[in-house]
């Protein structure tokens, strides 16, 4: 994160881009490594969840809205990217595939961003619980539509998606997500997100258009959820509509809250911990989900500001 020492803003600007390039290069190098299949799978889950949690954090954490529909955006991205790959990439010559994969991911992100725009519009008028239920409803509507769409396998799911997702792709894109969210928020422009969260009336009196910020947060957040969806599709090679239900959205919300809303690094860390937790609990798999539920309750009692929320920026 950027330091707050006097006259630090310009230097922080250049540093961030260098970090991003380094992180992306490291991720690509990782792709060439040989890993145990199980660990590799878990690592990709971790990366995908980082993207999901960090992007939701822009909406719920920084901008102070309450979206329960992130799985819906993820589904839109996953199905769009997977369908694109099945139609175009599979028939394409080998060297063109990475390019086509990138196109598929970006396309998935773009369509998800469009749906984010569609959900962001009601946020012009709705707040709190009402917004939460609309986003929840949006996620469910997406799921129902997918469930009935023969072109993407309907209820039986979409099978045979090529396995293009690698560790490199996952972490390079996770790095990009973190970079985008951190850069956005850590700018004069980006202080507007937090201003809108803290006090919408005061923000608009300072010339900040709350609607624009909220919709931007939704669009950017949805875009990356869509990217995560695309990675997920080409990692699992199979998509079932039930995988994107309300519970998936809750999982992502829990990551954001566990991390401490509005802290990118902590939220990313929470995504790592919560992805690994079920794996660690595998020996007691019978009680796994019960423990998960108890963890949520216990956490809210003991550390509602987030497990990894250190420092003074308190969440209201």
């Amino acid at each position: 994160m950027f330091s707050r020492s006097p006259l630090s803003l310009p230097t922080a600007c250049q540093g961030a881009k260098r970090w991003l390039i380094a992180a992306v290069l490291c991720s690509i190098l990782l792709s060439f490594g040989q890993f145990n299949r199980y660990y590799l799978g878990v690592a990709m889950d971790v990366g995908i969840n980082i993207i999901l949690a960090v992007s939701l954090n822009l909406i719920n954490g920084y901008t102070g809205q309450f979206s329960l529909g992130h799985a819906g955006f993820m589904a839109v991205g996953a199905y769009t990217a997977a369908k694109f790959s099945l139609v175009f990439a599979v028939a394409a010559p080998e060297p063109a595939r990475p390019v086509l994969f990138l196109v598929a991911l970006v396309l998935g992100g773009a369509v998800a961003a469009l749906s984010g725009l569609a959900v962001g519009i009601p946020s012009l008028r709705l707040k709190g619980d009402y917004l939460a239920i609309v986003t929840l409803g949006f996620g469910e509507i997406i799921r129902v539509i997918v469930q009935n769409l023969e072109a993407v396998g309907a209820a039986s799911g979409l099978k045979g998606i090529p396995k293009y997702t690698t560790l490199g792709w996952t972490f390079a894109l996770a790095s990009v997500t973190v970079y985008v969210v951190v850069s956005l928020v850590n700018s004069t422009y980006g202080r507007g997100f937090i201003a809108v969260k803290d006090d919408e009336v005061a923000a608009s009196s300072m010339g900040i258009n709350p609607v624009r910020y909220k919709v931007t947060a939704f669009v950017v957040g949805a875009f990356f959820a869509g990217i995560a969806g695309g990675l997920y599709a080409h990692h699992k090679q199979f998509l079932a509509p039930t995988g994107f239900d309300f519970l998936k959205s809750i999982d992502i919300v829990v990551m954001v809250i566990l991390g401490g809303m509005g802290r990118t690094a902590s939220v990313a860390l929470a995504a790592v911990v919560l992805t690994l937790l079920p794996e660690v609990l595998r020996p007691v798999s019978e009680y796994r989900m019960i423990l998960y539920a108890l963890l949520i309750i216990g956490l809210m009692m003991a550390r509602p500001q987030g497990l990894f929320a250190f420092g003074r920026r308190a969440v209201k």
Binding site: T188, D198, V201
Partner: peptide
Amino acid sequence: RLFSSLTVFDNVRAATQLHR
């Protein structure tokens, strides 16, 4: 009605953006 999670500096900074 200050922005309660922002610093003094950032409160003012957030208000400067409209002319940029």
